[in-house]
């Protein structure tokens, strides 16, 4: 354990996702090292699913994930800042609809 961080042949990294319950979207839990996919699944279970966190686990090789870069943050996300109408809360519920409750 103490030496593993200096090994040149370190196991590949896997990203772990779990589904909290039926129908819910998968959430990112963290990552594990493992020699292959099956062991990654077992390691993910032992690391992240010991407290009844979910019902299904996905593991994905970390190098297979394409991520946006920090520089993308502006162009990707800022344009949404002043577009409050994209949120449902922007709209008030008509009185007739409210009454039906």
């Amino acid at each position: 354990m103490t030496e593993s961080s200096t090994h040149t042949t370190e196991w590949p990294l896997w990203e772990v996702f779990y589904q909290p319950s039926d129908g819910k979207p998968f959430e990112h839990a963290g990552s594990v090292h493992a020699p292959d996919a099956e062991m990654a699944l077992l390691n993910a279970r032992d690391t992240y699913a010991r407290r009844n966190e979910g019902i299904v686990i996905w593991v994905v090789p970390s190098d297979q994930i394409t991520a946006s870069s920090p520089e993308d943050r502006g162009p990707f996300f800022d344009p949404a800042n002043d577009k409050a109408y994209r949120h449902p809360q922007f709209y008030s519920v008509p009185r007739a609809v409210k009454k039906r409750k």
Binding site: M1, S4, H33, N43, D46, T47
Partner: peptide, 9 residues
């Protein structure tokens, strides 16, 4: 353990 993950397992 030989690796952190195996230590936990």
């Amino acid at each position: 353990g030989p690796e952190l993950e195996e230590d936990l397992a």
